[in-house]
Structures are given as structure tokens and as C-alpha cells.
Design a protein around this nucleic acid. Structure first.
Lengths: 123, 123
DNA sequence: CGGTATCCTCCCGGATACTG
DNA sequence: CAGTATCCGGGAGGATACCG
């Protein structure tokens, strides 16, 4: 197994692929508030198309991060909620938010410095 | 500012966009071993095209996560190394790897269960 | 050696219309 | 309500050739 194959199959890569997905983390964060219906999610996560929401939910469900409950009612009612595994992800997401909030200013400053090579800071 | 705009601009999203990038984390992990040259990186990270490697390195440099040093030699020599900011990312990457390695079995099992709906586990 | 420049393909993801 | 089906455009990213 070469480095490439390892890099593409290792646990970190797989989790990264899910975490890196635009909508997945958003959905997980929404569900941190408790179970939610499909429509509620689609309204709270502005800009998501039904296609992407469904796709995201299926992916999370497949990975065992969320559960899907269909209630035998009319009209239909489907609830999504975090599983124990999904809830364990929240601490990681929290660590990410923490790092982001702590260092975003540095990153922002670095970006501006990079984009404006000539500009000196103060003297 | 609506939820969408917030979601797309918040610190977590920006960091996620970088972290989620396939090659960025790989590069950061490689550079954890110490400064490396362009060619060394391209060899160690199998499957990366020069275009993507350069693009990844520029992105990391712009965000202040890595430094780029050009040595006035013939032939040219360029070293990339983690900045302090970049090194601070390592703990986050470590947390990610840790979560991944801890829970990957559960995820894998969930995937198999999802992909084989009919199969029962033992009795 | 350390990249750029170019082309080209694939597929992600948005919009929309429809259905059980 | 909770999706599925279909179409479509744009951009990410690979391969390759070339340059300072």
C-alpha cells in the first residue's frame, strides 16, 4: 500500500471527507438542539436545496451519526436526531470552532498581508 | 445578515474550508516532520499534481500556516515549514485523528449495516 | 529545481418539477 | 410533508507541456 492509498483510506481522511462537507457539519450543529423534521432543517439551513439536504442526511445516517424516524401519521412526519456517535462528534466540532475563533484574526491578518504585499504595518 | 450568510462567513466555515481541503491537511502533516522542499513534498504526497501542490501551498501560505523560504542557490532551493500558527493546528489535526481512530469502527459498521439492510447481526 | 500555463473532463451541487 | 427525478452550468482538479 503506497502513501497515496493510505492517505485516501485512513480514518482521518474518511472523517475529513464528511467533516469537510459543507452541509454535514451544519446539519449536525442544528441537530445539537434536538430532533428536527426535514422541513425544519431545510428552513433553518438557508440556501440548501432539497437534493443536497437529502443527500447530506443520507450520508450522515449511513455513517451512523444521525437517526431517522418515520412516524406513521398523515401528513407524514420524519424526525432526524443525533445518535450517540453523532453527539460524540460535537466535541470535535467544538474544538474546531474553538480553534477557529481563537486564530481567525491571525489568519485574516495573514491573508491581508499576503494580498497587499507592499503595505507596511505602522512604521 | 441571514443564517446562510453567517454560516458561510463564520470562522468555523473558513477553517473548515481549509481543513476540508484534501491536500492541505496532508501537507501540514508532512511539514510536521520539519521543513521540506517542493520536490520532497510532491514525492511524499503521492498522487498530487504540481498544480494542486502549488495551489495548496499558496493557500496555506496565504493563511499564515506555512512559511516559504527561497534560498539564493543554483539550483534553486525552496523550503516550506510550519509557522507557529500552523503548528497550533497540529493539535486540532491530532484531535481529529484521535476521534477518527476511536470511532472509525463504529462508522464502518454503520455503513455496512446501512448498505446491507437485510443482514442481521447474529441472533 | 520549482514552479506556470493550458486544456479538458468529471462531477458537485443548484434549480425546478413532480410524486407517494 | 418529505422527499425523488431530471437537467444543467461552473468550477475543482488531473495530465501534460513548457519556462526561468
Amino acid at each position: 500500500m503506497d502513501a497515496s492509498a493510505y492517505a485516501r483510506n485512513c480514518p482521518s481522511r474518511q472523517i475529513l471527507d464528511r467533516i469537510g462537507d459543507t452541509w454535514s457539519v451544519l446539519v449536525v450543529m442544528m441537530l445539537a438542539d434536538g430532533p428536527q423534521r426535514y422541513t425544519a432543517l431545510s428552513r433553518r439551513i438557508e440556501g440548501v436545496s432539497p437534493k443536497m439536504l437529502t443527500q447530506t442526511l443520507r450520508g450522515l445516517e449511513r455513517d451512523g451519526l444521525i437517526g431517522r424516524t418515520v412516524h406513521a401519521e398523515v401528513p407524514p412526519r420524519v424526525d432526524y436526531e443525533l445518535t450517540t456517535l453523532g453527539r460524540s462528534l460535537l466535541s470535535l466540532v467544538g474544538a474546531l470552532e474553538n480553534w477557529a475563533e481563537t486564530h481567525i484574526d491571525d489568519v485574516q491578518a495573514a491573508r491581508e498581508a499576503y494580498d497587499n504585499p507592499g503595505v507596511k504595518i505602522s512604521a
